[in-house]
Design a protein around this nucleic acid. Structure first.
Length: 236
DNA sequence: CGTATTTGACCGGCGC
DNA sequence: GCGCCGGTCAAATACG
């Protein structure tokens, strides 16, 4: 297991999540993430690997797990690809420390991931939860939650990530044969959203994009937000 | 009957 | 300014 950094490459650094096996052929985030910092439950990753599904990539706009093939595409050396990988620098505002409630990110389309439609169209995710605060909407503009994209080969559109989601919209997007579904976490006070779509070029591939951070643990889905996350995660 | 999903309308950002 | 597009809302509908 190696760590691939956006700015310079460091190898050999351990990456670990409780009870999460990350295949050796995966690169990991520049900054080790705790389970709390993952947008979905580590169980999802475990499930994908266990079921031999092709969990091709876990990317974010800035960091994430990357399979070697994806990295090779950006490599100028076949002998030591990991040393010549070129990534975009993290876009401004995304702070893996996740200390801020909201962070501002710019628009990026990840190289080699164009089909995933992880576009940065300035959405209005706050509109619903910010009802009554329309005067502040302009201030909120350009403010985005950290986003993570999963590309998974699966027959089912919505993978069980341990959280409970409520569908609030579906949209046919341009240059895609398949509609994009929009989900919101059903937990009160949790504004995490996710988009699910299938690749137009390969309908077997499911793209799941998480936006924001859960304020609760997966097993705390029915109650109000609490601080039991660590306990729940450690139970894995 | 309560909850979840569907779907057309609406809104705002962005490019031209 | 206008049209396109993505994202969200909310009424209608489906479901358990």
């Amino acid at each position: 297991m190696h760590i691939c950094m956006d700015q310079g490459i460091q190898l050999g650094m351990p990456y670990s999540l409780p009870n999460l096996h990350v295949p050796d052929h995966y690169y990991t985030t520049p900054i080790p993430l705790s389970p709390l910092e993952l947008p979905c439950h580590p169980k999802l990753l475990q499930m994908q690997f266990d079921q031999n599904e092709e969990a091709l990539m876990i990317s974010s706009e800035h960091c994430g797990l990357y399979p070697l093939p994806a990295l090779y595409r950006h490599s100028s050396s076949t002998n030591h690809p990991a040393q010549t990988i070129v990534f975009e620098k993290p876009t401004a505002g995304f702070v893996p420390s996740f200390g801020a409630e909201e962070v501002s990110t710019s628009v990026t389309m990840r190289a080699g991931f164009e089909g995933a439609s992880c576009n940065g169209h300035a959405g209005t995710w706050w509109r619903g939860s910010m009802a009554g605060e329309k005067g502040k909407m302009k201030l909120r503009r350009k403010m985005r939650e950290p986003r993570f994209c999963f590309q998974t080969r699966s027959d089912v559109d919505v993978l069980d990530d341990g959280y409970k989601w409520r569908k609030y919209g579906q949209k046919v997007v341009k240059n895609s044969l398949h509609p994009r579904s929009y989900f919101r976490c059903t937990h009160s006070n949790c504004r995490v959203k996710k988009r699910v779509e299938r690749l137009s070029t390969d309908c077997r591939m499911v793209i799941t994009t998480y936006e924001g951070r859960h304020t609760h643990s997966p097993c705390d889905d029915t109650s109000s937000s609490g601080d039991h996350t660590t306990t729940c995660f450690s139970s894995f």
